[in-house]
Amino acid sequence: MKVTVFYDGECPICLKALSRWRDKAYTCDIEWFDITGQDDVLVAKGINPQRAIEQLHILCDDGAILTSMNSYSFLLCHLPRWWWLGFLVSLPGVRHGLTWGYDAMTRRRLKREGRCCDSKC
């Protein structure tokens, strides 16, 4: 299985996390794709560019698009010794709470950076 992970190359938190996780031995092939200035590519793949800034997106080779905590769960489930955390993140109550916290943190960061286009910011 091959997947593409779309990350925000203008996000210092994202880049720090990427440096930790990029070279791990996943059980699937991963292409890491910086979305900075790539709105046309995102739209062509069916991904809203603003949503891609707000949430981690993964495009699977079967065309499925995973977002937010489902993306993180997927990545963790494909890392030996981390699969259990991926399973935990996928549990409905846990996923909902983590999504709420992640979204709130992201909105604050984007507002601080002047990149927030959402009325919730």
Results as ranks from 00 to 15, higher is better:
residue 57 H to M: 12
residue 57 H to L: 09
residue 57 H to D: 08
residue 59 L to F: 04
residue 59 L to C: 07
residue 59 L to P: 04
residue 59 L to M: 12
residue 60 C to L: 15
residue 60 C to D: 10
residue 61 D to R: 01
residue 63 G to L: 06
residue 63 G to H: 06
residue 64 A to Y: 09
residue 65 I to M: 10
residue 65 I to R: 06
residue 66 L to F: 14
residue 66 L to M: 12
residue 66 L to I: 12
residue 68 S to V: 00
residue 68 S to D: 14
residue 69 M to W: 05
residue 69 M to R: 01
residue 70 N to A: 15
residue 70 N to C: 13
residue 70 N to Y: 14
residue 71 S to E: 00
residue 71 S to P: 01
residue 72 Y to V: 07
residue 72 Y to K: 00
residue 72 Y to Q: 02
residue 72 Y to S: 06
residue 72 Y to M: 06
residue 73 S to F: 03
residue 73 S to L: 03
residue 73 S to N: 05
residue 74 F to Y: 15
residue 75 L to I: 03
residue 76 L to S: 05
residue 76 L to R: 03
residue 76 L to G: 02
residue 77 C to L: 14
residue 78 H to A: 08
residue 78 H to Y: 09
residue 78 H to V: 10
residue 78 H to P: 09
residue 78 H to L: 07
residue 78 H to C: 09
residue 79 L to T: 04
residue 79 L to R: 06
residue 80 P to W: 14
residue 81 R to D: 15
residue 81 R to L: 15
residue 82 W to G: 03
residue 83 W to E: 15
residue 86 G to Y: 07
residue 87 F to Q: 15
residue 87 F to K: 15
residue 87 F to C: 15
residue 88 L to P: 11
residue 88 L to D: 13
residue 89 V to Q: 00
residue 89 V to S: 01
residue 89 V to N: 00
residue 91 L to E: 14
residue 91 L to A: 14
residue 91 L to G: 13
residue 92 P to D: 11
residue 92 P to V: 10
residue 92 P to Y: 13
residue 92 P to W: 11
residue 93 G to K: 03
residue 93 G to T: 06
residue 94 V to P: 04
residue 94 V to W: 05
residue 95 R to W: 10
residue 95 R to M: 13
residue 96 H to P: 00
residue 97 G to I: 02
residue 97 G to Y: 08
residue 98 L to K: 00
residue 98 L to I: 04
residue 99 T to G: 06
residue 99 T to I: 01
residue 100 W to F: 15
residue 101 G to S: 13
residue 101 G to W: 12
residue 101 G to R: 12
residue 102 Y to C: 04
residue 102 Y to F: 11
residue 103 D to C: 11
residue 105 M to G: 07
residue 105 M to I: 07
residue 105 M to Y: 14
residue 105 M to S: 12
residue 106 T to S: 09
residue 107 R to L: 14
residue 107 R to S: 08
residue 107 R to M: 09
residue 107 R to F: 08
residue 108 R to N: 12
residue 108 R to L: 11
residue 110 L to Q: 00
residue 110 L to V: 02
residue 111 K to G: 10
residue 112 R to E: 12
residue 113 E to D: 14
residue 113 E to W: 01
residue 114 G to E: 01
residue 115 R to L: 10
residue 115 R to S: 03
residue 116 C to T: 05
residue 116 C to P: 04
residue 116 C to D: 09
residue 116 C to F: 00
residue 117 C to R: 13
residue 117 C to T: 12
residue 117 C to G: 11
residue 117 C to W: 04
residue 117 C to Q: 13
residue 117 C to L: 13
residue 118 D to E: 10
residue 118 D to F: 00
residue 118 D to P: 04
residue 120 K to V: 12
residue 120 K to G: 10
